[in-house]
Amino acid sequence: MFLPVLHVCPTCPSVLGITLYPPALLLVFVPVLAYTLALWRLRQLGRMVPSSWPALFYAGMLSALVALAGPLDTWNDELLTMHMAQHLVLIQITAPLILLGRPVQVMLRALPPQRAGVLTRLLLRPVWMRRLLTVLTAPLVATALANLALVVWHFPALYEQAVLRQPVHDLQHLSFFGTALLFWWPIIDPVPRHHRVSGLWASLMVFITAVVSTIIGAILTLADEVLYEPYRSVAMPWGFTPLVDQQLAGLLMWIGGGTLYLIIILALLARWLLREEGQRVARESTA
């Protein structure tokens, strides 16, 4: 439901920086409408959800709108920096915020219990489906898939095809967003299934991803030549040159993305330490 069309229609009209490309707009607004209707239904039934859930979900969808139909998409063929920003938004902001909004829980709670049970059984009754979901959301597997997508798509041959060919471009962004959902799933545990990893494990997952992202960003920043051919000859706006554009894109991934990962690691470690301290105090009080 959240998988986006990730490229702009160059002939579509633009209003206030939003490109009026129907598929992209629908794939943002349909989930928002479904989520809003589910919230309305829950209020009608007198079932409330934490106010933070809608706030986080709508923030995530707003970030998706900025990435998919705003200036990041408008200029991503001309500027690698914009393309990189689009990737980082989808991976580091959109995916975790959507999961923090608990859309699965909200939708299921809004359904009559019998229908929710039927839907859950249809999706999870097959043994192979349960096993597949368990494997894909295992911490090491989810981390490996997310970083594999990040590394593979930054090889010049594949990245160039993503810029030049629309189907490959969509596949690139789809793999980034899909593996990001898998990566954040065991950290956030949005259903929940009581499979959330500990703060220490979550910090390790984010640290590994930060290292991989930093290495790629450093390579782009420190390279003495333009690595992606399509950006060599394109007419760049605002006085950018291809090499400066690549260096800024690398710095955005290296410093910008790395800083956000560092903040997340510190927050996860703080949560883990506080939980451990709380459990220690509880054990001592009952001793």
Rank of each mutant, 00 (worst) to 15 (best):
W272Q: 11
S233T: 15
C12A: 09
T120F: 13
P4H: 12
A95D: 07
P50Y: 08
A157Y: 10
V106E: 02
P31S: 07
T137Y: 04
R131Q: 12
Q44R: 13
R196Q: 02
A146K: 15
R165A: 03
A149H: 14
L124C: 05
Q92F: 11
A69Q: 14
L39S: 00
L16T: 02
P230D: 01
R131M: 08
G250M: 09
T120C: 12
L227C: 01
T137H: 02
T209A: 14
F183L: 10
Q166A: 12
G46N: 11
A144T: 09
E276H: 11
F183W: 08
Q92P: 01
L148C: 11
P156M: 08
L20F: 04
I188H: 01
A235G: 06
L182A: 04
P242T: 05
L248N: 06
S198R: 09
W272T: 02
L62E: 04
V163A: 00
A210C: 13
S285R: 15
V66P: 07
L252S: 07
V127S: 14
R102M: 09
D189R: 10
M205R: 10
W75E: 10
H169Y: 06
L42A: 00
A180G: 05
V89A: 09
Y35A: 00
A180E: 03
E225P: 04
P112F: 11
M129A: 15
V89I: 13
A34E: 09
A218F: 15
L111G: 06
Q105R: 14
G217W: 11
T209E: 12
W238K: 02
L266Y: 08
V197I: 04
R275Q: 13
L274W: 14
H194K: 12
L79S: 01
P190Y: 13
L124H: 06
T137N: 02
L25A: 01
S203Y: 05
P23T: 11
L6H: 15
P22L: 05
M61W: 06
R275D: 10
D77I: 11
L80S: 03
V8C: 04
Y21T: 05
F2M: 06
M1C: 03
A149E: 14
P242A: 01
A110Q: 06
P237D: 05
R275L: 12
R271V: 06
W53S: 00
Q246M: 06
T120K: 14
R115M: 15
L122H: 04
L200Q: 10
R275P: 02
H87A: 01
A282Q: 12
G217R: 08
N147C: 09
Q161T: 01
L33R: 07
W75G: 06
L150K: 07
A144E: 01
I98M: 10
L27T: 11
T137F: 01
F2K: 00
I208R: 14
L227A: 00
W184R: 08
V127H: 14
Q279A: 13
F155N: 08
